[in-house]
C-alpha cells in the first residue's frame, strides 16, 4: 500500500506569532519552525497503515527552503521518502494554489491513500485536503480518529458531537486525522540515523507542469486589508489557598452575582 502524508512546516504555536504589514503575512523565523503539530497525528496513522500492510510512506510538503524540516522530521519517524516542492513563484500562495500544487504531486505519486492533518496550526483553514479531494475527484474522510484497513477498503472511526461513526471507502481516498488519534511516536536513534540515507526529492512547479500564474500573490483569491492584535485578557485577583480557598471562591461568585 502506497501512502502519502502531507506535512506542513509552521511557526511553533506555543511561541508568540504575528502578522506583518504590508500584506499581513505570517512573520517567519527559521528557528521556531516545526512540523504542524496536528500533522504528527497524520504521520503516525500513515506509518501504522504502512506497517500493517507492508506499504511505504512518502512525506510531501510545499514551502520555502526551511520547509524541508517537515519532511526531514517525517523521515526520522520512519517515512521512506520525501518530496519538497519549492519554487520562488509560490510566495504568497493561498489555499487554492497550495491545493493545486499538492494535488499535482499526488497525481504524480499515485498513492492509494493520502493522509493529512485536520488543520494546519497557522492558517488553520482545513480546506487544503478537501480542495485536493475535489481536484482529484476523490472521496474525503474528514476528521477521523482512527484509520484501519483490510487492504482493499479503508475503514475509519470518528467521533462527532452527535455520536460515533464508522465509515468505509474504496481507494484512492484522502483522509484527515484529529488529535484524538494515536499518540505520535518519537524518533529513535536508529531511525534518525536511517533518515540520513533517505532521499528527499526537490520538485519545482515546472516538474509538476504547473504554470506560475496559477500560484503566488497575484493568483490569490483573497487579500488582507488590515490586521490588529486582539487585546488579551488581563489577570485578576489570584490568591493562595490558606484553608479557605473554596469559601473565597464562593464569595467571589456571590459578589459577581453568579450564584
Amino acid at each position: 500500500m502506497k501512502v502519502v502524508v502531507l506535512v506542513k512546516c509552521v511557526p511553533d504555536s506555543q511561541l508568540a506569532r504575528s502578522l506583518v504589514a504590508p500584506k499581513w503575512n505570517m512573520k517567519r523565523c527559521d528557528v521556531s519552525e516545526i512540523v504542524s503539530e496536528l500533522d504528527e497525528y497524520a504521520l503516525e496513522e500513515a506509518l501504522r497503515l504502512a506497517e500493517t500492510h507492508s506499504g511505504s510512506v512518502t512525506a510531501v510538503t510545499v514551502g520555502p527552503a526551511r520547509a524541508v524540516k517537515a519532511v526531514e522530521t517525517a523521515l526520522q519517524r520512519g517515512a521512506e521518502s520525501g518530496v519538497h516542492i519549492m519554487d520562488d513563484a509560490l510566495a504568497g500562495s493561498d489555499v487554492v494554489a497550495t491545493a493545486v500544487v499538492l494535488s499535482a504531486a499526488v497525481r504524480r505519486l499515485c498513492p492509494d491513500v493520502v493522509i493529512a492533518g485536520m488543520a494546519s496550526t497557522d492558517s488553520g483553514t482545513s480546506l487544503v485536503p478537501s480542495m485536493i479531494a475535489e481536484m482529484l475527484g476523490w472521496p474525503l474522510l474528514g476528521c477521523v480518529d482512527e484509520v484501519l484497513t483490510d487492504g482493499s477498503v479503508l475503514r475509519v472511526r470518528r467521533e462527532r458531537d452527535h455520536g460515533l461513526e464508522v465509515l468505509e471507502a474504496s481507494m484512492p481516498v484522502i483522509v484527515t486525522v484529529t488529535d484524538r488519534a494515536s499518540e505520535p511516536r518519537f524518533p529513535s536513534f536508529r531511525t534518525i540515523l536511517a533518515a540520513k540515507r533517505k532521499t528527499i526529492h526537490s520538485w519545482s512547479l515546472s516538474d509538476l507542469g504547473i504554470c506560475s500564474s496559477e500560484v503566488g500573490w497575484d493568483a490569490a483569491r483573497t487579500s488582507v486589508e488590515s490586521a490588529v492584535e486582539r487585546p488579551s485578557r488581563g489577570a485578576g485577583h489570584i490568591e493562595k489557598d490558606e484553608g479557605h480557598g473554596g469559601i473565597r471562591l464562593a464569595e467571589f461568585l456571590l459578589e459577581r452575582n453568579l450564584l
Binding site: 485578576g236 490568591e239 473554596g246
Partner: peptide, 21 residues
C-alpha cells in the same frame, strides 16, 4: 487570564466551594 484564581488543590477547594455555595 483568570478574573479570580485560587492556587491550591482542586480536591479540597472545589468541595469546599460547593459546601459554601
Amino acid at each position: 487570564i483568570a478574573d479570580f484564581g485560587i492556587v491550591g488543590d482542586l480536591f479540597t477547594v472545589l468541595p469546599q466551594a460547593v459546601e459554601e455555595i
